[in-house]
Design a binder for these strands. Structure first.
Length: 476
DNA sequence: TGAAATGTTGGGGCG
DNA sequence: ACGCCCCAACATTTC
């Protein structure tokens, strides 16, 4: 008997365009039942964090609306994926399930099991590549091993045959029986205490806004990206990260929008860092938990709940760090230059394990992405594959002066310092008493004294590293 | 996709 | 004119 209906299982590909699972259903002339299943427990330790759930809620709303305009209903379900798919397939008389791949270790395992079970039940199951330029197993060194260094990975990526064009949105046939779904609200993705106001103000999730953001970026900031990306006081970045994480836009779309622009390559290199992050996560699935470099197992991290909390709340006493942490808390996002500064501060100045920082980012970032988050923190921590050398320690004052020279960013997020002159904005503790008084700042009352002295903290971090250096050549 | 410490160079002041 | 010193600017090395 010919198949009539397919489920398209939406996961982190919340878009219509460049969606191979949708295209396949249309190509086969099948009616489509789009379904989203909320099953956070299947993601192991990495179920979406609080900020990401807010985004997901809004993105699902947007997708549901878009599908509705096409005459389709996005079914919302909750519960174990396999059973839910089987039940939904039965409800709708679907004999095929198509989806686009995820690459987190727990999801790879789950999807493998789902595929096997569906096929055992005579339901066709097919998965597609939609979230990466290349599958993590498609890129290998000459020796056939995974890359551990970014630059050769990047060269290899550029040497590959041209990346295929993004797929057009197909014409979809609605299914006769759409099945019964929940309201998105029933997933309880929104917080009970409304701390998400700032996120809603800063962002509009959804495919159309993602395309707009790309358009805006490619018609201006991309041309100055090389330097503009380092300025948190200006809008020199694409701000595409959360859209990209939820698949509201695909890297193929971004690639083709920017590749013809000579300057676009500087930004596409960042997209390649994302590819590299997925490559590493796929080949080294333990890295969200453990350092890549084995000698770091013996690293003398400190346990300091008080300073960790101060960091989280944006109360370290270092303005650029605090500005970043407050931007994160308020908007669910932090400028990448500031992410590096704030992360370096936690890991090097406070000697707190990078996993603590990764966990906080996981919960507070709307773009929280296991591959990127893991790579980023291991990079800063100096314990990753192609990481910054451990002794590369950011100075929060000089970084602030260099990349936020007028203190615009600091004043935006740390308004209690707004009255200080540019000269002191990144190191208020050095300002003369009368300057502080005139600015209406009393350190320890309006804004904290530095929780640690960077100079001393730097020396302490280097000494801590000395302790594990001897283990450098030990094998895993 | 750092920063500090250390080394080198070259111009200017000055005896 | 010369050597000497100082020091800023830049370069290299070290962490």
């Amino acid at each position: 008997m010919d198949k009539k209906t397919a489920l398209v299982w939406y996961r982190r590909d919340l878009r219509m365009a460049d969606n191979p699972a949708l295209v396949e259903a249309a190509r086969l002339g099948l009616a489509v039942v789009p379904v989203f299943i909320w099953a956070p427990e299947e993601e192991g330790d990495w179920a979406p964090g609080g900020a990401a759930r807010v985004w997901l809620h809004e993105s699902l709303k947007s997708l549901q609306m878009t599908l509705k305009e096409r005459g389709l209903t996005l079914l919302i379900k909750k519960g174990p994926s396999l059973e839910t798919l089987l039940r939904t397939a039965k409800e709708c008389g679907a004999e095929a399930v198509f989806w686009n791949r995820c690459y987190e270790p727990a999801l790879i395992e789950r999807d493998k099991a789902v595929k096997a079970e569906l096929q055992a039940k005579k339901i066709e199951a097919k998965s597609f590549s939609a979230s990466l330029l290349f599958e993590p197993w498609e890129i290998k060194t000459q020796q056939g091993t995974p890359y551990k260094v970014f630059t050769p990975f990047w060269n290899q990526l550029l040497a590959k045959p041209e990346i295929s064009k993004p797929l057009e949105e197909p014409k979809l046939k609605p299914a006769a029986s759409a099945g019964n779904g929940l309201k998105i609200e029933a997933l309880e993705l929104l917080p009970s205490i409304p701390w998400d106001k700032g996120i809603r103000k800063a962002w509009t999730p959804g495919e159309s806004r993602a395309l707009q953001a790309l358009e805006k970026f490619s018609s201006g900031p991309v041309n100055a990206y090389e330097t503009g990306r380092d300025r948190p006081d200006e809008t020199g970045t694409s701000r595409l990260s959360p859209h990209l994480h939820f698949g509201e836009i695909s890297p193929r779309q971004i690639w083709h929008a920017l590749r013809k622009n000579k300057k676009g390559l500087v930004y596409l290199r960042q997209i390649a860092w994302r590819e590299f992050a997925y490559h590493l996560l796929y080949h080294f699935p333990h890295t969200p938990r453990d350092c890549m470099r084995p000698e770091f197992r013996a690293f003398p991290w400190e346990r300091n709940a008080r300073l960790l909390k101060a960091w989280q709340k944006g109360g370290t006493g270092y303005p650029i760090v605090d500005a970043g942490m407050r931007e994160l808390w308020a908007t669910g996002w932090m400028h990448n230059r500031v992410r590096m500064i704030a992360a370096s501060f936690l890991v090097k100045d406070l000697l707190v394990r990078w996993q603590e920082g990764a966990a906080w980012f996981w919960d507070t970032l709307v773009d929280a992405d296991l591959a990127n988050n893991t790579l980023g923190w291991q990079w800063v921590g100096g314990c990753g594959a192609d990481a910054a050398p451990y002794f590369r320690i950011f100075n929060p004052v000089s970084q602030g002066k260099k990349f936020d020279p007028q203190g615009v960013y600091v004043r935006r997020w740390v308004p209690e310092l707004a009255g200080l002159d540019d000269k002191w904005i990144h190191e208020p503790w050095k300002a003369p008493a009368e300057v502080l008084e005139k600015a209406g700042v009393k350190l320890g009352r309006d804004y904290p004294e530095p929780g640690v002295d960077h100079e001393a903290a730097r020396r302490r971090a280097l000494m801590a590293y000395e302790k594990i250096k001897s283990g450098k050549n030990q094998t895993r």
